[in-house]
Each structure stands twice: as structure tokens, then as C-alpha cells.
Design a protein around this nucleic acid. Structure first.
Lengths: 123, 123
DNA sequence: AACATTATATCGATTACCGATATATCATCG
DNA sequence: CGATGATATATCGGTAATCGATATAATGTT
């Protein structure tokens, strides 16, 4: 139905859906330990079974924003070799994650209720 | 934490989260039968337990867009009284709903997996 | 030496959503 | 009967998140 990728086609891919969710995904990834940006993207993709992906035009602005907002802190790895900026959760970020996890789970429950309902209607 | 409503504060309310989801909500609501816009908004709010809401600055542009895309069809109620535009699903809309329901459920599953994982990590 | 991958970064364009504003009908209450 | 509030639709400007393209550079692979 209608060429995929057409502008305005609005195919509900994970990207469009993910609007506003990426920050939560970053927090969730960092919950398991400090990581640099590229690794966060790989982890999110792996742990979500490929459902969520970060384009690098999306990833780095988000990390910068979250650092500016105090949710994460980044430090350039001192070692030689390819430069990496390693991020870790701040206390604020940790608190934010737990609060927002609760809230998003409510939202997911609401959405699932809607979808289940739509599925059950006979025709 | 940080005044709610502050720009850039990004509190993950249902609104920000809902980006791209509203269309699916409209389709799901219309699955139960033809409805006019205002009623769709009330239904969505009720069936999602208040999690999802349409502001009217959001609702009508979405309906127009979806009609232009062929997912729904609207007809002005012929009867007298307050004018209402009653929308119903097209075949395309019905097919779109069932396909996107599957896909969104996968996304929800991926997201839940991430959240559950983040919750389970000791510290 | 050539190439792919890792790794970070920025910028312009797109677009969905929000808030405000506008219009009009109908019901209710004083 | 006039005011108010709920119903009902509509548009517009602004905001902000995301995308795609582009850039840089070190490292691994062939």
C-alpha cells in the first residue's frame, strides 16, 4: 500500500513512533553501565531486537541535550586510540529514568488497551 | 524535578510520546463504527483511561490529513442542528490499521523489554 | 594502498504537535 | 431572555524532535 518512504506516507515505523522516546532509551542503556555514544546505539538496537535504531544525526544531538539537561555526564576517554566520549547516568538521570519508566508503562498499557480493543471488534 | 511545562524539559507526557500515534488512535476508534471528530476525541480519551488526549488544534488537521491520504472518509451529517462531520474507515484505512497494529505491538514489546531490563539491573 | 568500520559532530529541511484564536449551535440556569 | 458553558469544527504561527546529508579522523582488513 502506497510506496514506503514517500513523504507524508506516515508508515508508523519505529522512528516516527520513537519521537520523544530516544531519551528514555539512552537512560535505559546507561542503566547497565557507562558507555560511549556509538555503543549505546548498538545496545539499544540489540536489546530492542532491532526495533529501535539511532541515526547518528539523531544520536549525538540527543546526548548533548541530555548532558546539558543534567541527565548524563560524558567524559572523553583518556586512553590513546580512537577518541570516545563515555557517558554515565547522573543521580538526576537515574531518578528521571525510574519516574519516567512508570509513566511510560502506563502509556503503553493505555495504548495496548486501544489496540486490543480494535482487534477484538468483529468488523 | 525542573518545572513541568518548561520548554526543553521534555517530561515524556503522553503528548510528546504520542507523536505519530494519533493516527493509529483514530483508526482504532473508527473501527467500532462511524463517528464525528469530537466524539473520536472523547472515545480515545475514555478508552485509554485518559492517557491519550486530542487537543482540537491537533485533532482536525489529523482528520483532514487522513482523509486526504484515503484512510478515512468524512461526510457532513445531513440532519439539522449542530453540524457534524462523520468519519468512517475506508478499506485502505482498515487494512492499514491491521498492519500497523501488528507493527506497533512489536514496537511496544521492544520498548517494554528495554524498560523491564532497566528496572531489573541492580544499580 | 584501498576500503569498510568505528566514532563523533553539525546543519538544513521536514513535519507533527501545541496553543491561541475564531465561529456557530445548543442546553441550562438565573 | 440573556449569560454562560459545552458541543463542534477550523486555521495558523511557533516550537522542537528527527532525519538525511555531509564532514572528519583513526583503526582494522584485504
Amino acid at each position: 500500500m502506497s510506496k514506503p518512504g514517500t513523504p507524508g506516507d506516515q508508515e508508523f515505523d519505529a522512528q516516527g513512533f520513537a519521537r520523544g522516546i530516544h531519551e528514555l532509551l539512552v537512560l535505559a542503556a546507561l542503566r547497565e553501565g557507562p558507555r560511549h555514544g556509538y555503543q549505546i546505539a548498538l545496545d539499544v538496537e540489540a536489546h530492542s531486537n532491532g526495533v529501535f535504531r539511532f541515526r547518528h544525526g539523531t544520536l549525538y544531538p540527543i546526548l548533548h541535550r541530555m548532558e546539558a539537561n543534567g541527565f548524563i555526564r560524558g567524559r572523553w576517554s583518556s586512553g590513546a586510540g580512537r577518541r570516545k566520549k563515555v557517558y554515565s547516568l547522573t543521580d538526576l538521570g537515574r531518578r528521571h529514568l525510574s519516574g519516567e519508566t512508570d509513566r511510560v508503562e502506563d502509556i503503553l498499557a493505555g495504548l495496548m488497551r486501544m489496540l486490543r480493543r480494535a482487534r477484538e471488534v468483529p468488523a
